[in-house]
């Protein structure tokens, strides 16, 4: 579901030979910002994220509490910074597992073909029919919520889609003459997958990984919003919204800032993927 709309003409970075426009750069900057925050969060939180620091609950934006305080009077800025860890970390682990599995199965199915391909494809297609959030809910409700369970569930939800995407790409590459040449040379399946297919599907597969990351962030936030994601006293961004939902009618910053955090991450991943750097191929050179 990559959107191929016209983008403003690329600026040129002559040293790398890549064209990368402003929208894409902003997207990448925001992604990197949150990634850095997720890593260094404990070092920069102004207050301990679990500590009640203010008498006033749902406090407004102020000099000492930049994003106000939550329903217990905890500092929202600190909680948002720590929440980045959960949201980014869990989603990243989930998407990595889902895509790694999907790509490997997809390529193997495309290269081997036959019964293996048919059965695996049908099975995963059928699995696709189960609504993702609901599946997550059922599993977590049944097994109990913990971070490994969340990661595995999210990976399981998005593996079939990733498989389907990677398989479609790999099937296309597999029909190319260079793969036939390698086969005729006597190469084994392992080499075909590693050297001939993988490098040629990597670009689109990484873009797909980005989109899937967005979906996972959204589902994870949804699970936390329903109260079965990351468990208190810790909270990811979805959990922060849930905790402070009563502040909504007051227009409390405690509910607005976590929302902005989620939106800023997902929108910038989308922006980045729609405007990936393009390698410059100058035909006249």
């Amino acid at each position: 579901m990559i959107d191929h709309h016209d983008t403003p003409r690329g600026l040129r970075l002559p040293r790398f030979g890549y064209a990368f426009n402003m929208t894409g750069r902003i997207g990448l900057a925001v992604i990197l910002f949150w990634a850095v925050i997720a890593i260094i969060a404990p070092l920069i939180t102004p207050y301990p994220p679990g500590e009640i620091v203010d008498w006033d609950y749902f406090g407004p934006v102020s000099k000492s509490y930049w994003m106000g305080t939550d329903y217990l009077g905890r500092d929202i800025l600190s909680r948002v910074l720590m929440g980045a860890r959960y949201t980014v970390g869990i989603s990243l682990a989930g998407v990595t597992l889902a895509c790694a599995g999907g790509i490997v199965f997809g390529m193997v199915a495309a290269v081997i073909g036959g019964w293996f391909d048919t059965i695996l494809s049908r099975l995963l297609d059928a699995f696709n029919g189960i609504p993702s959030l609901l599946f997550g809910l059922v599993v977590v409700a049944a097994v109990g919520s913990s971070i490994p369970v969340l990661i595995l569930t999210l990976a399981a939800i998005y593996l079939p889609g990733s498989y389907r995407f990677a398989r479609a790409l790999a099937v296309n590459v597999n029909t190319m003459d260079f793969v036939t040449v390698a086969r005729a040379r006597g190469e084994k399946t392992g080499y075909l997958i590693r050297a001939e297919i993988l490098p040629n599907i990597l670009g689109p597969v990484l873009a797909d990984l980005g989109l899937r990351f967005v979906f996972i962030v959204l589902v994870l936030s949804g699970l936390s919003f329903l109260g079965i994601g990351v468990q208190p006293p810790h909270a990811d961004w979805g959990g922060l919204v849930r905790e402070n939902i009563e502040g909504l009618s007051l227009g409390a910053p405690a509910v607005i800032f976590p929302c902005i955090a989620i939106a800023s991450l997902t929108i910038s991943v989308n922006m980045f993927i729609d405007n990936l750097p393009k390698k410059i191929r100058d035909r006249s050179q």
Binding site: V181, G186, N200
Partner: peptide, 24 residues
């Protein structure tokens, strides 16, 4: 077929665009 049999007969395709791996 044996590796040597494969080696002795090579095939070259029409479209060099698709016969060469674009990422190598």
């Amino acid at each position: 077929r044996t590796k040597d049999q494969l080696r002795r007969i090579q095939i070259v395709f029409q479209l060099a665009d698709t016969a060469l791996n674009p990422s190598q």
